[in-house]
Amino acid sequence: MPDKFPAWSVEQRILSRVGAGGDFLQSLLKQLERFAWPERDRFGIRLAVEEALSNAIRHGNALDDDKEVGIRCRVTQDKFWIEITDQGAGFDVTELPDPTAPENLTKPSGRGVLLIQNFMTQAYYSEKGNCLVMEKQRSSADGH
């Protein structure tokens, strides 16, 4: 079935300041509503993007005013795709401690990547670890 609306694509750079991705997120949420994405999908996408931008700004660019976060995003009726790139040194995602391990359960941070991986259909980091690509396929009517 052809999309009712043309795909929404955006490419922008944001400052490395807390909350700098707010305008982008509002635009994205509007588009997801326009394409009538299910509420649960919109919740998951919002959560994943919030967590990813926060990680890029805080951990990647370390809130450095001289660094920016690049965003490329595309939304259609069936697929959400985003690439978030920071200008930090990167990291090895396989080295992250498991936040669900008993010894880490009471730590107040370190859950963002786990949530991203669970709410997205796919999420992968570049080899350097400063670029994250996330994809989500629209859920079917029964929520799967």
Binding site: F43, R46, L47, E50, E51, S54, T106, K107, P108, S109, R111, G112, L115
Partner: peptide, 16 residues
């Protein structure tokens, strides 16, 4: 309706 992992962190600290 929505909370981030940073909010979870506050709840964990409160629980502690």
């Amino acid at each position: 309706e929505f909370l981030s992992s940073a909010a979870l962190g506050k709840l964990i600290t409160l629980d502690r």
